[in-house]
């Protein structure tokens, strides 16, 4: 088992071995979560603070549940509506929290790089729960776990990532992770939602969804991030659905056993057909949610082990 990281800021900093370590441990937590008695004590006595500068229901609930199942004291700070509005800077908020001696800090922020900045100022393990358009590492990890359990492997697969790639941190983390695990990645998006220079990341780019889906093992749909758009990226939602919305007809171009994924929340009828999303033979969207809790438990468990070891070393260094 190899996991050296102090924080989980992004997939970019993880090695393939570390990714595998997280997924293996998460598999064990999936089993735990399916039992009636789900409690564990690996984080008992530790304090976890969820600090969400952007509104979130699903991710915050998932992190909260993950922490509680591991026995941590979990506190939710809805910073989106508090002191930040009074003009306090991110650093000041971080320093205030740091003084309360948390052990795990789960942070979501609207600006890319904000979580990296915060991590450099605190003495605990920081988990990035999404920063701007940069990274959302636990989402990519839970997607990888879902794929591995459905396909039996997370290598040598053809994965099509489709939709609003420009505004998506999920897409960035996923394409870094899938690239590190040596998969073939296709990005499907209208040109206005395709970020510049992504062809250099070793992806194949498609404007035509049907061509892009041909022979795909995994179809990963993204949410159209209307709240991040400053207008005019697509002509209309109905034209978008016609050209880039996933329905049975377009999915027929992928492999017959291809799975359909979506990070949620879905815009039914905009990027994905409602019936298809609910089709238990194709859609693994509910499993993604289940894997989310397990992956977050695994990440926090591993970070907590490193934090304990680090504090132990620091203590040993000052002992005579």
């Amino acid at each position: 088992m190899t996991f050296r990281a102090r924080h989980l800021l992004g997939i970019e900093q993880l090695s393939p071995l570390e990714i595998t370590t997280i997924l293996d441990l998460a598999d064990r937590y999936v089993d735990l979560n399916r039992r009636t008695v789900k409690s564990s004590d690996v984080l008992s006595g530790m304090t976890q603070i969820n600090m969400f500068f952007e509104n979130s229901t699903r991710t915050q609930a998932s992190f909260e549940l993950a922490g509680k199942r591991l026995g941590a004291d979990v506190m939710n700070m809805s910073v989106a509506s508090s002191s930040v509005k009074k003009g306090e800077t991110l650093i000041d908020t971080a320093m205030t929290l740091n003084a309360m001696h948390p052990d795990l800090l789960v942070v979501r922020h609207g600006a890319s790089g904000a979580v990296n900045l915060l991590a450099s100022k605190v003495n605990c393990a920081v988990l990035n729960a999404g920063d701007g358009r940069h990274e959302h590492p636990t989402q990519a990890l839970l997607d990888a776990l879902t794929i591995r359990r459905a396909k039996g492997r997370i290598q040598r697969l053809t994965v099509a990532i489709c939709g609003d790639i420009a505004h998506s941190r999920v897409a960035r983390s996923n394409l870094i992770l899938l690239g590190k695990m040596e998969n073939r990645i296709r990005l499907i998006a209208p040109p206005t939602l395709m970020p510049a220079g992504v062809q250099d990341f070793g992806c194949e780019l498609y404007g035509d969804m049907k061509k892009g889906l041909e022979g795909a093992d995994v179809v990963m749909m993204l949410r159209l991030q209307k709240e991040r758009m400053d207008g005019g990226f697509i002509p209309s939602e109905r034209e978008y659905y016609h050209r880039y919305g996933l329905d049975a007809e377009k999915l027929a171009f992928a492999k017959p056993d291809a799975i359909v994924m979506h990070p949620g929340p879905m815009n039914r009828g905009v990027e994905i057909d409602g019936e298809l999303a609910d089709d238990i033979n194709r859609s693994v969207i509910q499993e993604q949610v289940e894997m989310g809790v397990a992956v977050r438990m695994a990440c926090m468990d591993l970070l907590a082990r490193n934090l304990r070891a680090e504090r132990g070393r620091a203590l040993a260094a000052v002992m005579p």
């Binding site: 790089g113 940069h134 960035r172």
Partner: peptide, 10 residues
């Protein structure tokens, strides 16, 4: 704009 900006999500 370019590869770097896209990677950093800026």
């Amino acid at each position: 704009s370019g590869k770097f900006a896209s990677l950093r999500g800026l």
